[in-house]
């Protein structure tokens, strides 16, 4: 399934433009969660995307 994920990014190192929107187009499984998609982005598309997550089983 094709999805577009829009992420509000924040980078305090960038003094001019610390906060901006970024779009990612990707192919995910029908059963994927939003978290699965974000993890897929960070692992396969864009290593600069950082997010906090740990158990990934909705605890």
């Amino acid at each position: 399934m094709q999805v577009t994920v829009s992420v509000r990014r924040y980078n305090p190192d960038d003094k001019e433009n610390p906060s901006y929107w970024q779009e990612y187009n990707l192919d995910v499984d029908e059963t994927s969660s939003v978290l699965d998609s974000l993890i897929k982005i960070r692992e396969e598309v864009d290593g600069t995307l950082a997010l906090r997550c740990s158990c990934r089983s909705a605890i």
Binding site: D13, D46, T48, A50
Partner: peptide, 12 residues
């Protein structure tokens, strides 16, 4: 190699 070369919250 790293894609993220920043220092702040660099999970890569």
């Amino acid at each position: 190699t790293l894609q993220d070369k920043g220092r702040v919250f660099n999970t890569d």
